[in-house]
Design a protein around this nucleic acid. Structure first.
Lengths: 363, 363
DNA sequence: CGTCGGAGCTAAACCGCATTAGTGCGAGCA
DNA sequence: TGCTCGCACTAATGCGGTTTAGCTCCGACG
């Protein structure tokens, strides 16, 4: 009798304590499946991973048993032997105090996961204070084998991260555009085309004095927008100022708007690089006795509830952030699989005209 | 000569291909450290994990070598042998289309990570469409051994999740309050006290007709607020309506505000369960020719940029979401360590009076 | 009719670390 | 002097998979 112990086609057996003090139930392993199906563990592995080495009959039988025992691979074991973590990392470097409204963020993440989840990858996500911490985290994750690759957001003009990623050999995708040191592949939205379409639209309405209140000048995409703004206004021979840079805050948006509107020959239309500043700008216009859109047209880059909470509602640039996230995840997974890196320019965003834009006042 | 091969104090050696097609550099393992320090692998493990079994001298020497070779533990290997994933999970169940402004979210996550990172734990984060997917994800994560525990947000009145978590034996912490089935420990903010303080404040200003536009009625915390609102208004003998439930959207906020203000004997103050609805409510008041705060006082639950973008700025209930996240993470880690589960009520939020509240108009 | 080859499967090694069961040695004690 | 005990350390095992090297059996082919 005793000789049968441990060899029978039993499921999980008694629960040995696991050092933790508490005893957790033993999970089913491929060993359990092997025993019950009467084959070796390797056969089970072959069957479960859809690789040759077992007959179709046996494969089906094994799959049946696996389902019956509701087996799932232990991700740690798999990561250890297959040298694949099944995880990608995403870091947000931002001082805790400035963590504010991020309509962009959840959309992006949710888009990424639509792709990742079907490829059995998870997303390791972390918010840190600054870029130094972000880089330290990349080092740590990679050396601990925690991730197979990372998605890097907010690329900057002189960005130290690509060099690090190359040095580490950590597969990575820059979300937001190639940096000057273009050594890491990137995906980005067509800010240039988007800006051009906004200027086209405003000029079409009759505007000749257009301003652009931009975001952080260190960000690559801000640079693209600024450059494109200059090119577009030159194209039409408009005598506008250069874009003004801000930190994206409502205070900055209000301050710069006030500044612009106080000048002689003030703009009749302002393009804001985010919705928060646009709303702040509308507030300033109100204070100054200007009405939107009859005295001043306002366009917000990026759409969110905010743009629909104001009166009038804001004309905004909407983009499919969800899809953008999906594409990014796809690219990264391809990279991890060993595909040759290449840059990708995503779709051009669409301008959604609402109540905040109209022809300029008659001179 | 040959006999020395592989036994010398060498660092990582030649790079064997790893099945992937690409060959990655071999990482340093405790084996490398052992060789170079001239001790056994176990000695290294003891030294690195600060446990007895090695002399202080040896320990220091080993630590020195480890740093020199810049060794980091392979998380998969550690997870496999220690039966600890070093990861906690967080799921957001929300239809992709309604993913909007979440000022709350990043703060919460960043607070969690302040605690998790010092305990060498990472956060696995996922956004899914609905609660069924969320539950499936818990099953999967747990069976794959991917997480040691999960943080569960948005507890509901008849919440199926606690039962599942108990069934799985997956350590979990409910963020937002104990459910009726109270089988899973929870941490929550003192909504009851917060609501009482708001009503106190408004009554102190002289208001007698106060309304409450609440959020999703299925959520536990909404229920607490609604109950507390009723209790508080009873206490003062106010003849107010019951709270009205919404889906948190700006449309719902606007609709319910319009409804309330159209009635005979309309409220002179409205408490909104989030800032988006509060802003929408201010908009409606403006349309109806009512001015805030002289005709109508408005209080928003939860503070964000939004509350400072309106004119006047909104009186709001601010809470330290970052700290809340930290406390939650702390509780969960304690649970995972095997500590006895218990509920925790967090600090009471603070009311920040701004321009949107004032004494009611004279009758 | 011998043998070659492939299909189907098993045994064993390995991934990197933690942990348990020894082993050798010097100090303490009777 | 002999014996025990504790310390510092090593050897071996296990975690749950994947993968490589064999091994066996059978049919096809020369």
């Amino acid at each position: 009798m005793d000789s049968l112990r441990g060899t029978g086609p039993s499921g999980p057996e008694a629960q040995p304590p696991n050092g933790n003090g508490r005893s957790r139930p033993r999970r089913t392993t491929i060993r359990d499946i092997a025993r019950r199906a009467g084959v070796s563990e390797s056969a089970v592995s072959f069957a479960l991973n859809n690789r040759p080495g077992v007959s179709e009959d046996t494969r089906q039988r094994i799959l049946g048993v696996a389902k019956e025992l509701s087996w799932h691979p232990n991700s740690a074991a798999r990561a250890l032997s297959a040298a694949r973590a099944g995880t990608v990392g995403l870091v947000f470097a931002r001082p805790a105090k400035t963590l504010g409204i991020e309509p962009f963020f959840l959309q992006l993440v949710s888009g990424m996961q639509a792709v990742l989840s079907v490829r059995a990858s998870a997303l390791l996500f972390q918010v840190v204070e600054n870029m130094a911490a972000e880089m330290a985290l990349y080092r740590q994750w990679w050396s601990e084998h925690r991730v197979d690759g990372v998605l890097v957001v907010d690329p900057r003009v002189d960005d130290p991260r690509p060099a690090l990623l190359v040095e580490l050999g950590l597969p990575a995708l820059l979300i937001g555009g190639p940096t000057s040191t273009g050594t890491v592949p990137s995906i980005w939205a067509d800010d240039t085309g988007a800006m051009a379409s906004i200027v086209d639209y405003l000029v079409g309405l009759g505007h000749r004095r257009i301003a652009h209140i931009a975001g952080l000048p260190e960000l690559i995409h801000t640079k693209r927008r600024i450059d494109s703004f200059r090119a577009a206004t030159r194209k039409y021979g408009l005598s506008t100022h250069d874009s003004v840079a801000t930190d994206y805050s409502d205070e900055a948006g209000a301050r710069e708007t006030r500044q612009l509107l106080a000048e002689p020959g003030p703009p009749t239309a302002i393009i804001y690089d985010n919705d928060v500043m646009a709303v702040a700008g509308v507030g300033v216009a109100g204070e100054l006795g200007l009405s939107v859109p009859s005295d001043l047209s306002v366009v917000a880059w990026d759409d969110s509830v905010l743009c629909r909470l104001t009166h009038p509602q804001l004309t905004a640039l909407v983009r499919d952030t969800h899809a953008f996230g999906s594409h990014a995840a796809q690219q990264l997974l391809a990279l991890i699989e060993g595909e040759a890196p290449h840059d990708v320019e995503d779709d051009v965003p669409r301008l959604e005209p609402r109540g905040s834009t109209a022809p300029p006042p008659l001179p």
